[in-house]
Design a protein around this nucleic acid. Sequence first.
DNA 1: CCAATAGTGTCTATCAGACATTATCTA
DNA 2: TAGATAATGTCTGATAGACACTATTGG
Lengths: 237, 237
Amino acid sequence: MNEAEFLQQYNQKAFDTPNVSVDSVLFTYHEQQLKVLMVNRANYPDKGLWGLPGGFVNLQKDKTLEDTALRKLAKKTGVKPPYLEQIYTVGNDHRDKRAWSITVCYSALIAHQYCKVQVNSVNDAKWLTLDEVSNITLAFDHQQLIDAAHQRLKQKALYSIVPAFVLPEQFTLPELQHVHEVIIGKSLQKKSFRRRIEQAELLIDTGEKRGEGGRPATLYKLKSNAGQHTFIRNLEN
Amino acid sequence: MNEAEFLQQYNQKAFDTPNVSVDSVLFTYHEQQLKVLMVNRANYPDKGLWGLPGGFVNLQKDKTLEDTALRKLAKKTGVKPPYLEQIYTVGNDHRDKRAWSITVCYSALIAHQYCKVQVNSVNDAKWLTLDEVSNITLAFDHQQLIDAAHQRLKQKALYSIVPAFVLPEQFTLPELQHVHEVIIGKSLQKKSFRRRIEQAELLIDTGEKRGEGGRPATLYKLKSNAGQHTFIRNLEN
DNA sequence: CCAATAGTGTCTATCAGACATTATCTA
DNA sequence: TAGATAATGTCTGATAGACACTATTGG
């Protein structure tokens, strides 16, 4: 038997396979706080509980796992987030009552403005702060997935400017610093924060300014590769 | 319908699901080089090509994805590696000719001594250097998985002593430094390397020494939590 | 003694933390 | 001018890089 013959007689359903879903932790920054998009489950199991936006891989619609993540996010928000990163995959025989189940967990970042309308028009989806999330019971092991995504984002805030993706395209340095502070959970030295970003040349000065009360702050946007940059030395943690 | 009724009538095979496999990049250190355990594929597809040890999740035998990884590794090496870490998950419609396929990729580390016998007794498995691996055609996308695992290990070598798990329980500092150098691909300052390990108090001095030619080196073993420690500042890269 | 390998001393360079100071806006 | 917020100057401290030096073994 050669490979062609083998493939022809191969029956995909010869073995039991786990259920495969993709769940995403979509973060944004609003009202000085980090928030996560949560969805109220319409179906069993865990019907009525809040959980992450996600669902099963659709072999017809999705070419890749990222497609699944983006398709499910687009269904709830109407947009494609500018940052998407795989966190990790959990798979075991007890996380889902129905079957041996796997979920591939992604983390995504988006500016609140860019999907505000769509989320507000759907009453089964809403933004919750991490504190609110940890005070309610979530579906499946979604609390752990959120914690892991938050931990990863925290690390990134210490050695990259990935958190900038929760802001709109143009933002100020004080805004960005505050985002980092909220994610890390402690305040940072203004000078340290600015110095490293300036040295790494990660931002483009748009020339515009934005002021509210005091001296107007310079508006910047990210250089195209800014998300990839990692500092060799972390901020204190 | 309540949840109990829902679960009773739920048919797992109502939807097509992807195939799910787990593949592991098992690294070791031998003859001054980093090596990866490769397996010659006995079956189609890609029969006869070298690939990573791994296979499909078995819903009866495995309670978790890690169980699958360890079961497949034990089958080839007879042992359980002291370090196992998930790298990432690839899933798409073209990586496996048979079907929409997912693989969860793990990286594992083990001392060469601890599984030498078992590997040598199986003629379909052998240790290859990373250079050898990149000069042959591998099954599926296994070359990419190996590259990703190597990249991750490289990062860990810059900010942790995780690479110590490719050495036996007792090892010397010159040995450990060389392992790091091989993984990173460049030489390191002896003083820098030793200073940070001493300050972090990650090792236990066994009191024993081992010599070959010159002054004997002190034998150390890892403190139990040494694998978790991360330095706040990276070695140069 | 020499050769070889292990391990230390010490200077410099870099960069984060701390915090005072200056700059630029509105009312 | 005062108040607010943005941005900079500059000192200190921690730690990695460089490299010369000392220590301990065998022959």
